[in-house]
Design a protein around this nucleic acid. Structure first.
Lengths: 177, 177
DNA sequence: TTGATTTTTTGATCTATGTCAAAGCCTTAC
DNA sequence: GTAAGGCTTTGACATAGATCAAAAAATCAA
């Protein structure tokens, strides 16, 4: 992922906007349209939505991760997701329309864009496997395998909702190392 | 999805191989490399893998759906998935290497390929949401929303494993319509 | 047809995890 | 440095869904 991330930064630099967001800052509000992709150079972002009042994390983007309002980008509709910074974060913004225009001019970059998309996709595939038929402990272990340092950087509650379990359960899982 | 599917068939016809598979036929075996994408014109395919002996459905592709050994295609490694036909199916095969070569020659088609990928992606996103924090009944309802006729065409056991619940539970959920 | 598989349903437990509640801990701000 | 608020842990209890087992239905094959 990392090399590819760097490649993307290099080749798409003409259309990237570099920004800094403070911890706690909301980069995108639910119910609005946004076709920005957020490429995280450092820090942590997360997307989340509400299921009858409960805050559920949809996705984390740690350093070299990516997050965006996928539903909005693809369907061009108001998004159900919010996106917020969990740490002070350095982020590159990539507007999807600009991306397409840029790719039209530089078709050589299509291959790179495709590979990047594939990685984002396989990440989701793995995530689904990590949720199906696994116990709370197994889900947690699976997450740690994929993102070893996430526990130091993201609160237990956010991780729990990402895994589809309650914070109490996650706390108990953790208790038995 | 459907229009886009037709568009793909039309524009990529030079590299598509048309095949017919009988019900029960294994199109891809786990532990082998395959970079074929299976575009289902009619019939049903499913991919599945084993979690300590238990057969778990990873994905269904009904008419106008797509399935492939995603891990193998993206990582070029032996796949954990099997792919089988659940009905006699008419399928178009698309080899990923050929696709890339073809796209190099016809960069105009990149946009179409990208849109197609996006739809496949958003499908997965919705699926994850349909599994996180939902009860067995809610998961089932969510599936029926997305694939109304799946129950007539796929066995209860396959659907249950796809939803991450046991067949007994799914049977009981169904009992109370 | 008819027996043999396979799939689905039903029943009786058992258990992991949810829920509710309260207490401890750790930050952050003044 | 202390108060305030947010996180995390712990406990008691409730419950959805797993597991095990067996019967009933449906599908298939000869």
């Amino acid at each position: 992922m990392e090399e590819l991330f760097q490649e993307v930064l290099t080749h798409f630099s003409p259309i990237l906007k570099h920004k800094h967001f403070e911890k706690g800052r909301l980069l995108h509000k639910a119910n609005e349209v946004s076709i920005e992709l957020f490429l995280v150079r450092s820090g942590v972002l997360r997307s989340f939505y509400y299921v009858d009042g409960k805050d559920v994390t949809a996705h984390f983007a740690l350093d070299h991760g990516v997050v965006g309002a996928a539903d909005s980008i693809i369907r061009r509709k108001r998004s159900r997701y919010n996106i917020e910074a969990l740490e002070d974060s350095e982020v590159f913004l990539l507007n999807y329309d600009e991306l397409e225009a840029f790719l039209d001019k530089k078709p050589k970059l299509e291959r790179l864009a495709r590979r990047f998309t594939q990685l984002i996709y396989i990440d989701l595939v793995e995530r689904i496997e990590g949720m199906t038929f696994l116990s709370a402990k197994e889900r947690y272990d699976h997450l740690i395998d994929r993102y070893p340092d996430i526990t130091q950087r993201v609160s237990l509650g956010h991780i729990a909702s990402y895994l589809g379990i309650t914070q109490e359960t996650l706390s108990r899982v953790r208790a038995k190392h």
